[in-house]
Computed example of a mutant assay.
Amino acid sequence: MSRAHAKFRHVLNEQEVMRFLEKYGFTCLHFEDITVAEQAQIFSSAKVVIAPHGSALTNLVFCQPDTKVIELFSPRWLRHTYWNISHKCHLDYYYVIGNHAENYVTSQNSLAWISESLKDDILVDIKKLAEVLRLAGIR
Rank of each mutant, 00 (worst) to 15 (best):
D120V: 03
C28E: 13
V11Q: 03
L129W: 02
E71M: 12
W77Y: 15
R3T: 15
S74T: 09
T58P: 00
E38H: 12
L12S: 10
L21A: 12
V61C: 08
Q39E: 11
V17I: 01
N103G: 12
N103I: 03
P52L: 08
V69Q: 03
L21W: 08
Q15V: 02
C63G: 05
C28H: 01
Q41F: 09
D33G: 04
A37I: 15
E16K: 15
C63F: 13
D121R: 06
R76Q: 09
R139Y: 07
F62R: 02
L111W: 03
N99W: 00
L21R: 08
N109D: 14
D33W: 07
I50A: 00
L111M: 02
L60D: 07
H53C: 03
N59D: 12
H100P: 00
T67V: 02
I70E: 09
R134Q: 13
S55C: 04
P75M: 08
C28S: 14
P65R: 12
N99Q: 15
L133I: 14
I114G: 03
Y94F: 14
T27R: 14
I126G: 09
I126W: 06
G98T: 11
C89G: 00
L118E: 13
V49Y: 03
L21I: 06
Y24W: 12
H80C: 05
A40S: 14
G54T: 06
I97N: 10
I34D: 04
D92G: 05
R3D: 04
K23P: 01
E14Q: 15
E71Q: 15
T58W: 10
E38I: 06
E71A: 11
V17T: 09
H87F: 15
M1Q: 00
S110H: 04
H80G: 05
L72S: 05
E38Q: 15
V132S: 01
L133M: 13
I97M: 11
L118W: 09
A37V: 13
N13T: 12
D66I: 00
K23M: 05
S117R: 04
S44L: 08
R9L: 14
L57H: 02
V124P: 07
L72W: 03
W113V: 00
W77F: 15
S107E: 02
